[in-house]
């Protein structure tokens, strides 16, 4: 191949205007022996591409990638719904338990305590009636 032609192709190459065929021609040329000294450095570039093209993916690469990206079964979703059910259940049972039975009658602990005392005494008195009916 003519030197001038190669120079032209190189020009196109650096403008990224070469076709696949033209690049093949360049590669072929730089694989040859009569490359002028000034273009010696291009030899590395074109032989690099050629070499790299020969690299094949390793055994089982596709499987390894698919393993990483494959859609998971909806395990996560199931666990989330399970967690939601538990939280809902606890919340609901606490709600049920606190309402309406455990709405405090008194705001003041002192008053509440007085009510508790009174209730205990009434209960105690009634127990006495049962335990000592003849008194």
């Amino acid at each position: 191949m003519e030197r001038g032609q190669i120079a032209q192709l190189l020009e196109k190459y650096w403008q990224v205007e070469t076709t696949v065929e033209e690049e093949k021609m360049l590669e072929e040329y730089f694989r040859g022996t009569d490359v002028p000294l000034e273009w010696e450095s291009y030899r590395d570039i074109f032989s690099f591409y050629e070499r790299e093209r020969g690299v094949k993916p390793g055994e089982g690469l596709e499987e390894r990638i698919m393993e990483v990206v494959r859609p998971r079964p909806r395990l996560r979703g199931a666990w989330w719904s399970a967690a939601a059910v538990i939280v809902l259940g606890l919340g609901l049972s606490l709600y049920q338990r606190d309402k309406p039975a455990m709405k405090d009658t008194y705001d003041d602990p002192q008053q509440a305590l007085a009510a508790v005392q009174k209730a205990l005494l009434i209960a105690s008195r009634n127990m006495h009636k049962g335990l000592h009916p003849l008194k």
């Binding site: 606190d98 309406p100 039975a101 455990m102 709405k103 405090d104 009658t105 008194y106 602990p109 002192q110 509440a112 305590l113 009510a115 508790v116 209730a119």
Partner: peptide, 26 residues
């Protein structure tokens, strides 16, 4: 309780576990 707590015929006293804990301050 649930059935009659809002019924005006009934009088209700309830002291919750929370209030029982507050007794320590009395």
């Amino acid at each position: 309780f649930g059935k009659y707590v809002e019924d005006s015929r009934f009088s209700v006293v309830s002291v919750s576990p929370k209030m029982f804990r507050l007794f320590s301050k009395v």
